[in-house]
Simulated scan of single mutants.
Amino acid sequence: MFYRLPSSVRRRIVRIIVPKYLVGAVTIIRDAEAAEPGRILLLRQPPGRSWGLPAGLLKRREEPAVGAARELQEESGVAIDPDDLTAAVPNAIVHSKGWVDTVFTGSVPASTTPLIVDGGEVLEARWWPLDGLPTLTPNTALLLGIYGIGPLASEASR
């Protein structure tokens, strides 16, 4: 019976019934010049007690890689072409609080890539060695753990 309804009515019914998710884009950016174990770019945002990854919500109808590149540049000053970002595996992380993060990886040479922050949304951007990460936000620690990085990396593999 549902499929006999006009498509506009079906779409309205689905939008009412199906839960809505916010969709964000996250980038894990490595220093292309760093020796093993490597370094990643982290941001300290207000209130400034711990560090996280460049991330933000996608704009309406924005392609995830485009949104990831946009947020990276807005928050850290790092400009990267969306085509130079690689979809992480897994690419989408569904959070229990009602949002979905699409995750991308990339690399830039830290020595020639200036980090620029606005002091409002982002207090500080810095390259951190993978074997010496600072205190991470809970969401960042969980997300990095999925990709085998950080203090929760061993828990994610269980």
Rank of each mutant, 00 (worst) to 15 (best):
R70P: 15
G67H: 10
A69P: 10
R70W: 14
H95L: 02
K59M: 14
T105L: 10
F104R: 06
F104G: 08
V89R: 06
E75H: 02
A92H: 05
I80G: 12
P54K: 04
T105N: 04
V78N: 12
V100C: 01
A87F: 13
P109H: 01
D101Q: 03
T113K: 12
D84E: 15
L57I: 11
A55R: 05
P64V: 14
F104H: 13
P114K: 09
E71F: 13
K59C: 14
L72F: 06
L85C: 12
P90G: 03
T105G: 07
P82E: 11
P54F: 01
V78Q: 03
P114V: 06
K59G: 15
H95V: 06
I93N: 05
L53D: 07
D101T: 03
R61G: 13
A55P: 04
K97L: 03
E75S: 09
L115W: 06
A88H: 07
E74I: 02
P90W: 02
G98Y: 04
G67D: 13
H95W: 08
V89K: 03
A88R: 06
N91M: 00
A110T: 12
E63P: 11
G77T: 00
P82Y: 11
A65Q: 09
P54L: 00
L53T: 07
R60L: 11
G106T: 04
A65T: 11
K59Y: 14
A88S: 06
V89P: 00
Q73W: 05
V94H: 04
V78R: 04
D84Q: 14
L72R: 06
D84N: 15
L58I: 11
A92F: 04
D83Y: 05
E63H: 13
T102C: 13
D83M: 11
I80D: 09
P90R: 00
Q73K: 08
V108G: 09
G56K: 02
V89E: 14
V78G: 03
T86G: 10
L85Q: 08
T102H: 14
A110E: 13
A87M: 14
W99P: 01
P64L: 09
P54Q: 10
N91Y: 03
E74Y: 07
V108M: 14
G52V: 04
F104W: 12
L72Y: 03
T86F: 06
I80H: 10
R70G: 15
I93E: 03
P82S: 13
A68N: 14
P82K: 10
A92E: 06
V100P: 05
E62C: 05
V78A: 01
A88K: 06
E75C: 00
N91F: 01
S76G: 03
E71P: 02
A55E: 08
E71T: 06
G52I: 01
A68L: 09
A88D: 03
P64T: 10
I93A: 01
G67Y: 07
L115Y: 08
Q73N: 02
A69E: 09
R61Q: 15
T102K: 12
A87D: 13
E63F: 11
V94F: 08
